[in-house]
Design a protein around this nucleic acid. Structure first.
Length: 491
RNA sequence: GGUUGCGUAGCUCAGUCGGUAGAGCAGCCGGCUUUUAACCGGCAGGUCCUGGGUUCGAGUCCCAGCGCAAUCACCA
């Protein structure tokens, strides 16, 4: 016997084989069988559809002269039934000997058992790949998160939810791309290796190009390159790709993560709000339809919550949320500092006013956002938004929002700053207070500033964490459940 | 990086006050032509995460390390 199989023609998925079952033909076959039982000389006619399928063995019940095997493939599970009377002797021996985890193919009519289970009544079975690894848990799949993340290939076939989640992820990413293209955005690819790590404040990973003898940073954001494309004449661009941030790892942070970033010339943060609201709404609606929920305001479970993605999402200004959270006017420097001290914020006595406002917001205010209602927090302070255009009527605030869903930040959007002089001034201010270590990767991006001098049209820009979106839409509690191969410590 | 919890058979777990290492499933042998976590009889299966320490004796108590998880810090 060849234990590792070979090319198989004419395979259908297990779901398709199940779909081929026909009640009427099964009824006719049952009648034929009854005749044959009454008259042993009669040969029953079997007109049931025949299918060839392959899959991994996930259950095996040997009843002596009758064997039931459950197969699993990308489309689901299906039972295969083998009767000693209708399978060649050597193949029946194989059917009795298969192990949990083996991959086999079978061919036969799609019928039903006495107990009502739709199955393939195999006429033949062959080994397509013998599994040599010890099998994981049989009924619940794998539960040890360490094994699940380190041995994803086993996890995928042994834990049904895992495969379903990653299939859903691919569909979601595809939906995102089709949505953006339908809105007239062009997908582009900008450098992952950058001589300067700009566009976000995160600490970057460093690598070296030997031939050019230069340090390069894995990008923390594509922002500054996408904006150069606006300068060059691409009015609506987006990128769905990886960012790398050399920061802590937790339930919602992986060092490499996938983000959607998009820019629209002659738009602003409000056109980005409509875009993002519709994108999240439509992907959620698509997933709700897959769950059999066609209600207009799609609702999806996330842990113990039911999150409702009906439009419009909640809007609240940064100042309102701040006041609601701690009862203090965010412009009142003395009260803010007192509140920060009360909240034990690090360096509350000396830190800049707006950095205190930001710290209070993330610790004491963001938790007050209703996690079951997607919420845009708008009108952020200019001082903590260096790439954003200040509001003309109140330059202390700027045209920026952040979207929160399920207790997580999904992403921000800005009306982009396109005045090169103000941009230079903001970058310079930002560089003032940084420590020695930061100066190794954070320097003034003169090339970007000279692009801005060429002239960038006014624009809106947005970013959206794809992994977190997939977490929400697939009810996955950890970012590691939606990243195929999450970063783990060396074992 | 801090704190807390966890780590025992291939998988999921129990292990009392410190006193012979346990169960179910998986595996192996035998039986069974309608099973749905099939069932019945039998067998085998261990670096109790690693390394020290306390003790007559450690899976159990102490210390250190490794890994995982939660949480905090970091993350414009």
């Amino acid at each position: 016997m060849e234990p590792f199989g070979g090319r198989v023609e004419g395979l259908v998925s297990l779901a398709d084989a199940r779909g081929a079952f026909q009640e009427e033909l099964q009824g006719r076959f049952d009648a034929e069988s009854a005749k044959a039982k009454a008259d042993p000389a009669y040969t029953p006619v079997d007109s049931r559809p025949t299918r060839r399928v392959a899959g991994r063995v996930v259950q095996h019940r040997d009843l002596g002269k009758l064997v039931f095997i459950w197969l699993r493939d990308h489309s689901g599970d299906l039972q295969v039934s083998l009767s000693k009377a209708s399978v060649p002797e050597r193949e029946f021996e194989l059917a009795k000997a298969v192990d949990y985890g083996d991959i086999v193919s079978v061919e036969g009519p799609v019928g039903r058992t006495n107990k009502g289970e739709v199955c393939v009544w195999a006429r033949s079975i062959s080994m397509q790949c013998k599994s040599l690894a010890p099998p994981p848990g049989k009924w619940h799949g794998l539960e040890d998160s360490e094994i699940r993340y380190r041995h994803r290939s086993t996890d995928m076939w042994a834990t049904p939810k895992t495969l379903a989640t990653f299939q859903a992820r691919s569909r979601i990413v595809s939906l995102v791309r089709r949505f953006m293209e339908a809105r007239g955005f062009l997908e582009v690819e900008t450098p992952m290796m950058q001589p300067l790590a700009g566009g976000a404040a995160a600490r970057p990973f460093v690598t070296t190009h030997n031939a050019l003898d230069m340090n390069l940073f894995l990008r923390v954001a594509p922002e500054l390159y996408l904006k150069r494309l606006l300068v060059g004449g691409m009015p609506k661009v987006f990128e769905v790709n990886r960012n790398f941030r050399n920061e802590g790892v937790d339930r919602s942070h992986n060092p490499e993560f996938t983000a959607l970033e998009a820019y629209e010339a002659f738009g602003d943060c409000w056109t980005m709000l409509e875009l993002t609201e519709s994108l999240v709404h439509e992907t959620a609606a698509a997933m709700a339809r897959e769950n059999g929920d066609a209600a207009p305001g799609p609702t999806l479970p996330f842990g113990a919550m039911q999150i409702n993605y009906a439009k419009p999402f909640v809007r609240v200004t940064f100042a309102e949320l701040f006041k609601r959270g701690v009862g203090v006017d965010m412009f009142d420097e003395a009260k803010v500092r007192a509140e920060a001290t009360k909240l034990n914020i690090h360096n509350a006595a000396t830190l800049d006013h707006w950095l205190l406002v930001e710290a209070i917001m993330s610790h004491a205010c963001e938790p007050h956002i209703d996690p079951t209602k997607p919420t845009f927090v708008t009108d952020w302070p200019s001082a903590i938004s260096p790439l954003t255009r200040p509001r003309r009527d109140d330059p202390r605030l700027c045209e920026r929002w952040d979207l929160f869903v399920g207790g997580m930040e999904l992403g921000p959007a800005y009306t982009e700053l396109n005045d090169p002089d103000i941009q230079r001034q903001k970058f310079t201010e930002q560089l003032k207070g940084i420590g020695a270590e930061e100066t190794t990767f954070r320097t003034l991006d003169e090339d970007f500033l000279s692009s801005l001098k060429v002239g960038m049209p006014p624009a809106g820009g947005m970013g959206l964490g794809i992994d977190r979106l997939v977490m929400l839409l697939t009810n996955s509690p950890s970012i590691r459940d939606v990243i195929l191969f999450p970063l783990l410590k060396k074992s």
